[in-house]
Design a protein around this nucleic acid. Structure first.
Lengths: 258, 258
DNA sequence: CGCCAACTTGATAACATTCAATGTAGGTGG
DNA sequence: CCACCTACATTGAATGTTATCAAGTTGGCG
């Protein structure tokens, strides 16, 4: 379940050059969405000096639970899943990361979870020691990290409510709602969602089996809530019904990170 | 379910005096366990200037989801539960707080969860604005907060694994294991646990019903894993079996906060 | 063209919930 | 002081949602 079969789409330049030659961070489109935005224009080169850009294929493992935590990452593109496992192989996906999301909170010696690429993904990799040294220097960056950490905590609490108290249909509706909100924040059309992750990932995220995920999708199709062109592209036809199922209160501001 | 019937045990002085008269923070026994430990001895009075000590009865509501988030708290004594609710009343308890735990992470305008006293509890209350102003002044304090936030995130991930993938028996064993670890960190005997919360709280924390909690406890009793003198005091008779059930790996360092 | 992985659908079974009754302890009032 | 009341906990029986086991289906790729 965890040894992946890498696929073959290295679309992005595997390793970018840090250092003075060019200054990719300065031109970074998502800088202001993440911790990097805490630095003033003339300080950006400090980041550039420690970052290495990295592309991983779908299915590739970034690290597993228990690995020495020697780096933090920011997702530039693609989708990463974080997960924890029980000794017998049962798995819980604790989150999906997309563009601009931070990976590596939990400042400890070892990662408390595994990370694997759902689709081909590009990340900025910051050596742990050196990034944390920058935090000492730039309190504003630490402030941002605290803010990110707080949002993730809030999302985690939402997810606990989902896992502990929602039915299969409510879980799936909440999942679609969440993806839709994220899509709306970015450029994408929020009615038409990509589902880069497979059914087993969705199941492991929602505390369900593949079969239940599939059956619930069919049920949604029959009720006119959603429609599919391909299994990995869903159209939300009745957002209100989905929101109702998800248990979303009116005027609710969903958390930014999953 | 949320309007409580306050009980009658105001054991502690309801409101302590801040200000120059005395300096309770300086004498605080748990200072070093929390954010306050970030301040040097001569800076402690800054905290003292903004803190108000507060005692709440069992069942009392500190705040509910959606209330303006105007304060942070540190638990001095007693037990507080945090929870989220669905529109129809289903509830998920996202954590229990004990001595030295921080309450109020999630730096937003409104609380994303409710907080209620499980047992009579004493807290230090810090007005939000003023505490956050102190953070600007003392980066070390912010650092501690980030560290607390990270631990809570790790605990939240553990809890997602529990809620999404563990059976009733595994959930309950994990819960006892967690309480035991916490007790071991403090003064208490780790074999003999207080359960200040009622069965419905345990159920809402583990994503189970009262009945399942009760049945699973009796099952544990029959198997010789635990024994009860009173419903709110459990003795762990077979820790190894509980750890095994909980899915705890050898040499595992459980997170400090629930 | 056929294989393989992912997904869907069906039949059965299990675990936990629901509904219902009983048990227990602490507190209150007669 | 004892009986009663209420809140919490336990136990029992029936139901149901979701998991499990087992075929099929689809689509991409060699």
């Amino acid at each position: 379940m965890s040894t992946p079969t890498p696929k073959i789409t290295p679309l992005v330049d595997p390793v970018a050059r840090p250092g003075p030659v060019n200054n990719p961070c300065a031109a970074c489109a998502i800088r202001d969405l993440s911790v990097c935005g805490a630095l003033k224009p003339d300080e950006i080169s400090r980041l550039n000096a420690i970052v290495v850009q990295k592309t991983v294929n779908a299915g590739a493992t970034l690290f597993i639970e228990g690995d020495p935590a020697d780096a933090h990452y920011i997702v530039l593109d693609g989708c990463i899943k974080l997960y924890k496992m029980l000794p017998d192989g049962r798995r819980q996906i604790t989150g999906f990361l997309f563009r601009a999301d931070f990976l590596g909170l939990a400042f400890r010696q070892r990662y408390a979870y595994g990370a694997e690429a759902v689709s081909t993904a590009t990340l900025c990799r910051f050596p742990r020691e050196r990034l944390e040294a920058l935090l000492d220097e730039f309190p504003e960056m630490e402030r941002r990290l605290l803010s990110i950490s707080s949002s993730e905590l809030a999302s985690a609490q939402d997810q606990m409510l989902l896992l502990g108290r929602k039915t299969a249909a409510e879980k799936l509706a909440s999942f679609l709602w969440l993806l839709s909100k994220r899509a709306a924040l970015k450029e994408t059309d929020w009615r038409r969602l990509d589902l880069p992750m497979m059914r087993s990932d969705i199941g492991d995220y929602l505390g369900l089996t593949i079969e239940t995920v599939s059956r619930t999708f069919t049920q949604f199709k029959k009720s006119g809530l959603v429609s599919f062109t391909r299994p990995d592209a869903v159209q939300l036809d009745d957002i209100d019904a989905l929101a109702e199922l998800a248990g979303v209160e009116e005027s609710w501001q969903p958390s930014t990170a999953m």
